[in-house]
Design a protein around this nucleic acid. Sequence first.
DNA 1: CTGTTAGCGCCTTCAA
DNA 2: TTGAAGGCGCTAACAG
Lengths: 353, 353
Amino acid sequence: MGRTTLKDIAEKAGVSVTAVSRALSGYPDIGEETRGRILRIAEELNYQPNIAARTLVTHKSGVMGLFVLGRAKGEGFSHPFSGQVINGFLDELTEDGYDMMVFKANRPPDSENSSYLDLCRRRMVEGAFLMGLRTDDPWLSDLTASAIPIVTMDMPLAGDMTFSVGCDSVSAVHAAIRHLADLGHKRIGIVNGYKEASISLERFEGYKSALTSLGLPFDPTIVAEADFTAAGGRQAFLSLIDKAPDMTAVFVSSDLMALGVLEGARERGLSVPEDLSVVGFDNIEMAAMSSPPLTTLDQPRYELGQTAARMLISACSGITPPSRVLLKANLIVRGSTAKPNKIKTGEVIEKAH
Amino acid sequence: MGRTTLKDIAEKAGVSVTAVSRALSGYPDIGEETRGRILRIAEELNYQPNIAARTLVTHKSGVMGLFVLGRAKGEGFSHPFSGQVINGFLDELTEDGYDMMVFKANRPPDSENSSYLDLCRRRMVEGAFLMGLRTDDPWLSDLTASAIPIVTMDMPLAGDMTFSVGCDSVSAVHAAIRHLADLGHKRIGIVNGYKEASISLERFEGYKSALTSLGLPFDPTIVAEADFTAAGGRQAFLSLIDKAPDMTAVFVSSDLMALGVLEGARERGLSVPEDLSVVGFDNIEMAAMSSPPLTTLDQPRYELGQTAARMLISACSGITPPSRVLLKANLIVRGSTAKPNKIKTGEVIEKAH
DNA sequence: CTGTTAGCGCCTTCAA
DNA sequence: TTGAAGGCGCTAACAG
């Protein structure tokens, strides 16, 4: 298994190990000629540094951690949202010479399992990116209280070394509601996520303030809450439409839930967008493929991941990034929104009773 | 920053570092009483071993690598298939005390970037799991030729230490075709993946042999090939149905492509399943949410990931696993398949001309 | 500019 | 049953 080490190169080059180390690390204090020779030999021997050894002395592992919280049914990795974020995160890390280690989150906090923080410390992880929504994970505080830089996704948390990325929900929702209002909708409901996610609160704020600024009344009867799943979205929509059959449009806090809303609408014999306009949030791949394709707010997922990586890298090199970075979500108009069709809506109301 | 080390524990317990090391590693050659005391102190100090140091001497990092190949548009991480596989893989690894490092694959093979193998060696990765489909990645041979155990997904490759997991395509496709035949279909087309993926070849074999064993003729005009994307599936289906409007059913090699087929069918005014039956492959989340919900072959994705992990762990401990492990894909009958409707089909044929 | 020395934290002989 | 010594491969002082 004889890997080539600095020593091998040193012997072959007739210099000391230190010299080789310096040449390879790009230090200036080494003769041009010697450095050239060393580099050539290193290349020749396909030298790969033993990072474990380096880590041992420098206390820097070059590893960033990724915790994907809430990995149950359709969450976490399996969530259509995560993929591109992780791609962006990984690409940016790789660009800067970091590697990414993914840890299993949401393990039961018993003595068998180590806390998130312990996992980081064992591996000397330099910083960690947390994806997930619930701020009530009991293992979070450990991490955010530590000196390890943390970036969270859509989940601003307290902590000196804790930062977060996300999209500006308020202005995004404004754009969505304005779009609906421009089309002529007056009765616009909302299917929001659960309250344990801060994005839900923000999106609700955006919804309310948008209505206000557009001169539309706010009506709590057309506000529903679901669990960010399609099934939950469907359910929430059904209860909404049954209570308020005159609702002509609905803003949904995630595309997955919006797909559930589409399903619910079908069940009630409502055709989208003729009888009901639907706007989602996220622009997951599926959103373009549903029938009708979903009007939604595009989150720049890849860029969100990149941004998280950059913040982490920056924090690790001592440059404190802003505690929260918000990107812009853009409205993508597709086939699920249109002018309200009063007549059809009337028919449907009767059918529904 | 002062992490607790073996030395700290040793001092506090009044023993040597060696003794502590042994106690913590569960060696038997240490006094019951001493061990107890040591363990207690370790607990008290929340001792976390420095894995870098351990790796340096044992040459075992406790890290498995994950390479997600083909990360372009909708592939890799972003693919709805990957998530659960990775979950299973990670869970099983964690169970055995391994951690997972994810590497960026498909980087251009220039001097800037290290080969997959080099990445593994730097980090002393003990084994690697490769997800992806194209057997023509130029960086693969390096890895499969090395002594590092490799498990690939759906991509059997040569190599002493190279293994693979996947589903038994042939018998799965048989089940699908039999289902269609049982419903009364006689003219069953196929939208397959590209030939660079070995699953495409296997599924094609399954398709042909199923037809034969059911006494149905094989007709090359209703065979099409696409790139595993929805857009590609749509395109392939359109060319198929235009050439052979009497086709009443189609087997599609992936759900993503099948969703594209559904879209294509809509465009041609064919309603599914009345005019056309569609069977997919994978049972991704979306498959249950399309309209109509897709009849498909369920791949046990989580178990595939678990299996990969177990094979890797086993290979790392010197127990050579079987070079290929096939799990069973199960037919899930949903709304996209039904008896062929001759009359409607007739109408459509005329419309199409 | 280059080499010598020392040590990171841990495991593994070898003695006691 | 326990301890002492040595070294994994690398970097970081400190000398020359």
